[in-house]
Write a protein that binds this DNA or RNA. Structure first.
Lengths: 335, 335
DNA sequence: GAGCCTGCTGTAAACGTTTACGGGAGTGGC
DNA sequence: GCCACTCCCGTAAACGTTTACAGCAGGCTC
């Protein structure tokens, strides 16, 4: 693993200056003969340009960072699957950050953009604090947020409409004759947690159903927490005939609990998840889930970022991805 | 977004030379008063060191790349989940490459290490061609391979023992009284595909069962391909009473086909997957799967790479992660 | 043949760090 | 009062590129 060839090596070998080498390699107009000699030398030496040196000079790293809470959640994988090819087509590499939804760590990641290791960042935070907003606007590289930020925040932003999503789900459950619809949510200090609970109340109201505290439980957006919360709910409100869950992992946790309690899905209790991850289709019975367009949101975020990198001055945009209910076996038939 | 402060800016502000600034920021011995002034200036200016410039000088990027076939496969996610924290603790960032198991692209990724954007790479190739081996040994940065490479290849290497894994599964099925055990494999030109088929034959032989071509089908390591292959197998060998699948995705594809064909799992057909991904636990009935230690392999690979980065001269190591059968509902009870 | 393009190339500076080297100020010994 | 030594610090080079600028050779116009 000897030290690799640089344009200096090539220059010596070809008997020209490093400027000429650089010009040839970048396709700038050069005399035929020089081009030939340089390319030959480069080829013989197996030259590969040094990305770091190039970045230093050009002030672009051709890297984009993606920060999410937990790569174990298939939602983020779905996003990455779309983000990656879009970035790659534009010549960018993807740097990954898993933050565990830790606020301090997210702020840290944003601040780390000051090190200039990436030209921009896509971030999908669960919580959006004032510190986030400050860090985002102070960031030394463009940031695109997947998730809602306060109205008027000057930042490119891709949103799902989980409110409407919850509404779709509850309408569906209501149409099936379910009237005791429980709700298992994630933490209320997260953006989706708060939005989904509000949407749940609104949807009940619109349907003329009472809001019953016993039907609501708060856990976290993981399977085990979902299971624990569902268990508490079931203990308090044994007559529940449907469970709306704030994401698919929670729904799968609920599955476990319902089964252990001897409740049939969907005959006794219908279940709806959110995010429509791969898990929903794999689960049995297959899980009805509100598709919040993770894939589309990923792609949109990548495109927003690329546009932004091309033009820093353009006004920030908000892309809204509409929800869609994907009905499966977990909500078939009446009670 | 004005141009950020550099050590030159700090130097002017503090009235010292850039050398002193650098020394202070790197904790080299310096006079108390100078330290104070520099730190104050750096603080006021909100200085963040430029990672690119530092990399150019130090010849280290503090980045590690991870290349895998498809981030949609939970196996790789399980690996990343372990790789990420290990690298992070050592101060490295993770750069992601999804190669679609395309040989040319994998070679390309290896070659791209010549650009020096990463200090090393972890790669999990499905196929290992001569070109791979050449590219790996010629790579301009250390590479750790997850998966088997030919004996004696001078490269750090983490292996699963899928042969023993298949053997465990078949012993288990045999013990349950299954005698017509089908095998749904991935492409035979992949390392795991070939190894698993060989192991299947050996295991049958050891159990005194005949090898029946009708019981073997080749698809690809995705769910839809697995389903198609399982359907073909079912058509040819309707009396199959167990299906060994070369990974979990294939097994889930087989689930769909079996259900559509009205076969009960496991009563009519027992099913075993491989990799023991999250999907196995989510599926219904829960899927018995051979755990090949993806998480452990990820961690081991990250540690091998870090060790290698610390000492280029150490002899290459091979880490073997033993398989383990995780039995679940898909293989309960006799036929 | 002077002057002027045109086409190509080399020199050198710059990007933001780290670091080898040498110099200046201060101290102590003689 | 000179030398030796120590402690800090500044100058400058280096990492591998890109690029502004200037210079040179040759051909053209008058």
């Amino acid at each position: 693993m000897a030290e690799g060839p640089t344009i200096t090596t090539i220059a010596e070998r070809a008997g020209v200056s490093i400027a000429s080498v650089s010009r040839v390699l970048n396709g700038l107009p050069t005399r035929e003969e020089t081009v030939r000699r340089v390319l030959a030398a480069a080829d013989e030496l197996g030259y590969v340009p040094n990305a770091v040196a190039r970045s230093l000079k050009s002030r672009r790293t051709l890297q984009v960072a993606f920060a999410m809470a937990d790569i174990g959640n298939p939602v983020y994988v779905a996003m990455i699957r779309q983000i990656q090819p879009v970035l790659k087509a534009a010549g960018y590499r993807l740097v990954l950050h898993s933050t565990d939804a830790d606020v301090a760590e997210e702020i840290d990641v944003l601040r780390s953009l000051g090190e200039r290791y990436a030209d921009g960042m896509i971030m999908s935070p669960l919580r959006v604090t004032d510190d986030h907003l400050k860090a985002i606007t102070a960031a030394r590289a463009p940031v695109v947020i997947i998730g809602s930020v306060p109205e008027g925040t000057p930042v490119d932003n891709v949103r799902a409409d989980s409110g409407t999503g919850v509404r779709l789900a509850l309408d569906h459950l209501y149409a099936l004759g379910r009237r005791r619809i429980g709700f298992v949510d994630g933490p209320l200090d997260t953006v989706p947690g708060a939005a989904r609970l509000a949407a749940y109340r609104d949807a009940l109201h619109a349907l003329g159903l009472p809001y019953d505290e016993d039907l609501v439980e708060i856990g976290d957006f993981y399977r085990t927490d979902g299971a624990a919360a569902a268990a508490r709910l079931l203990r308090r409100a044994g007559d529940v005939d449907a469970l709306m869950c704030a994401n698919d992992l929670i729904a799968l946790g609920a599955y476990d609990v319902l089964r252990r309690a001897g409740r049939r899905i969907p005959a006794d209790v219908a279940v709806v998840g959110m995010d429509d991850t791969d898990l929903a289709a794999v689960a049995w019975p297959a899980l009805t889930s509100v598709c919040l367009g993770s894939a589309e949101r990923g792609r949109a975020a990548a495109e927003l970022l690329l546009d932004r990198l091309r033009d820093r001055e353009r006004p920030p945009r908000v892309v809204m991805v509409p929800p869609r209910l994907v009905t499966r076996a977990s909500t078939e038939g009446g009670p």
